[in-house]
């Protein structure tokens, strides 16, 4: 017998190998089932799937790509955090340093383009789910979770927009935060807000309205940068992760990838 094959057979009999893998190479139904069942990541999937649901021409792989892009964004984002400091003094220079002063200076590029790509794939995923009528019973609630995930994807991208602290960033946020100021009854420029007062004291003013909550101040400044940084890196990804888990769980519980009844 060829010595490599001998070695391979030996390795597979060691206690270490057997403690990790509970099955042989999945080339037969039993091991194919075990491969999916005994792996925490693969067991997101059922052991067997509808043939129509596996086809790329049916799913376009858009939901999967969106999730994969979320992983890309998480990994590149964590790496970027090693260099980026969210302060007025350093933010812009750190962004340049990420291109010029570190090896593999394309991580920010991948992160930025990945964010754009994720917005596109999440829209196309929604479009596919609509066109196949996959939101219909029993999947109504999962569609609702999906819509919220879509909104959160755009919020993730929007909060990330401010972090380079360039002209593009602050003016996009200036326009965005002034829209928050126009919230009816909740923003200082919003319709009806000026009616909310006790005597002469306004209940909603530039020190406590929706814009203030978004910017952590009355103007875009260091507190805003920090707030968007935390939202972008921790707060929204935390919520998104929870909802993704719920979304996938519901896909399984509602009957897997949709197919004709």
């Amino acid at each position: 017998m060829n010595p490599l094959r001998q070695l391979w057979n030996y390795i597979r009999k060691t206690q270490i190998w057997k403690s990790i893998f509970r099955h042989n190479y999945p080339d037969n139904p039993r091991d194919q089932s075990l491969a999916v069942l005994t792996n925490v990541f693969l067991h997101l999937h059922p052991v067997k799937t509808r043939k129509s649901g596996v086809r790329m021409s049916f799913t376009w792989c858009m939901g999967g790509l969106t999730f994969f892009l979320f992983l890309i964004e998480s990994v590149t984002g964590i790496l970027l955090m090693f260099y980026y400091r969210p302060t007025l003094e350093f933010a812009y220079n750190d962004i340049i340093a990420l291109r010029e002063h570190v090896p593999l200076g394309i991580l920010r590029e991948i992160h930025r383009w990945g964010a754009h790509a994720m917005v596109i794939t999440v829209w196309l995923h929604m479009f596919r789910v609509f066109m196949t009528g996959s939101y219909k019973p029993p999947r109504e609630f999962n569609w609702a979770i999906g819509v919220i995930l879509l909104v959160l994807t755009m919020l993730l991208s929007f909060t990330g927009y401010l972090l380079p602290w360039d002209q593009l960033a602050i003016w996009a946020i200036a326009v965005g935060s002034n829209m928050a100021a126009a919230t009816p009854l909740g923003g200082v420029e919003g319709p009806g807000t000026m009616l909310l007062k006790i005597g002469d004291v306004s209940l909603v003013h530039s020190g406590n309205d929706a814009k203030f909550g978004l910017l952590a101040g009355r103007f875009i400044g260091e507190a805003t940068l920090l707030r968007f940084y935390v939202l972008h890196c921790i707060a929204i990804p935390f919520v998104v992760t929870l909802l993704i888990a719920l979304h996938f769980w519901r896909v399984r519980k509602d009957g897997g990838i949709s197919g004709p009844l």
């Binding site: 020190g207 406590n208 203030f212 909550g213 952590a216 101040g217 009355r218 103007f219 400044g221 507190a223």
Partner: peptide, 9 residues
């Protein structure tokens, strides 16, 4: 908590 009492502006 997200609305600070003191601003450094």
């Amino acid at each position: 908590f997200l609305f600070p009492n003191v601003l450094f502006e």
